[in-house]
């Protein structure tokens, strides 16, 4: 792995113990210039991970706690009348930060949700007819509680698609939790040095696009998405946006591992995170569903024979 990323993973790993894979995926998402959705039960370390990422890359961080009465203006910012200058000035909301943690995104009303998702897609917001560009890099980490919990407005499929990846941290292992209880990872003393500067991050995001992807890998991606469209067991087939996302994530993963070209292993490594939330039907209880993306991976041979 690229030495600098290795340092980030190591640093984050001290606070979120035993979740190497998820940390790597989160960094991949960041350098692929995509947004991350973390779906998990409360108290699994979602916020810690976001804080950690922000400090490691030296990003301004803000956190918006979504509730059912949160309005778009609370998030985007408002025009306030300045009585000294006799004019309205725009007061930017918490969204104007490089890393935004949208906590419990599915507790907000659809109106607020779609305002956030629009900002994610366009990298800009419009308030009262004026367009304001969001800072660069702009990275949203959405967290959501499982959709079967009460008091949630599930994100529609079209909006889930905006998140490049969806990961879930899951319970820590016995050893990890022991280590945590014995003194590691205390939120109060949560200070992390900046490992990679923001400027470097922007360069990396450019370099990811230069990673080579051979025809064979593209054909593998196409076979995967075609299978999802033809086999008929998947509630939602993978869209062209999904295949683009898959390629982008695979490139970032290859870059993270200091390789100049994509191999099928890269696709497989990011596939569950990229594809599962697009394949699944949110209306069904996720506890009873098998991992559809794994099934899809098993059914397609990466070697075109």
């Amino acid at each position: 792995m690229n030495a600098r990323f290795h340092a980030v993973v190591k640093a984050l790993g001290q606070h979120i113990i035993g979740k190497q894979e998820q940390i790597k995926l989160a960094i991949t998402c960041l350098i692929a210039n995509g947004h991350l959705l973390i779906e998990d039960l409360p108290g699994m370390g979602k916020t810690t991970l976001s804080h950690g990422l922000a400090s490691a890359f030296g990003l301004n961080f803000s956190r918006i706690q979504f509730t059912s009465d949160l309005l778009p203006a609370d998030m985007l910012g408002v025009n306030i009348f300045d009585s000294q200058q006799h004019e309205f000035t725009f007061k930017p909301g918490p969204l104007f930060n490089q890393l935004v943690l949208a906590d419990e995104i599915n507790r907000a009303s659809p109106k607020t949700q779609s305002a956030l998702l629009e900002a994610m897609e366009e990298h800009q917001v419009s308030v009262d007819g004026t367009t304001y560009a969001l800072p660069r890099p702009f990275f949203v980490i959405g967290t959501q509680n499982p959709s079967y919990q009460s008091g949630t407005y599930p994100l529609p499929e079209s909006q889930l698609d905006r998140f490049l990846m969806r990961i879930s941290l899951g319970y820590p292992s016995w050893e990890a939790e022991t280590a945590m209880l014995q003194g590691g990872g205390n939120r109060q003393q949560f200070t992390m040095p900046e490992v990679i500067s923001t400027a470097d991050l922007l360069v990396y995001q450019q370099e990811v696009n230069q990673i080579h992807c051979s025809d064979n890998v593209i054909s593998y991606i196409l076979r995967l998405v075609t299978q999802s469209r033809e086999e008929g067991v998947y509630p939602n087939a993978l869209s062209p946006r999904a295949s683009k996302a898959l390629l982008q994530a695979a490139k970032a993963w290859a870059y993270l591992h200091a390789r100049e070209f994509v191999v099928p292993e890269d696709i497989q490594a990011v596939f569950v995170a990229v594809a599962e939330h697009r394949l699944r039907s949110e209306r069904d209880d996720p506890r009873e569903q098998k991992v559809l993306s794994e099934r899809l991976l098993e059914s397609v041979d990466p070697i075109a024979a």
């Binding site: 099928p264 696709i267 497989q268 041979d301």
Partner: peptide, 26 residues
């Protein structure tokens, strides 16, 4: 690909492991 698959075949039959749609490095 032919040569590679033949090598896989030799290993599969000798050691009783199947590739199961795994990519080559895995």
């Amino acid at each position: 690909t032919q040569l590679y698959l033949r090598a896989v075949q030799i290993i599969s039959s000798a050691y009783g492991i199947a590739r199961h749609n795994q990519p080559p490095l895995t």
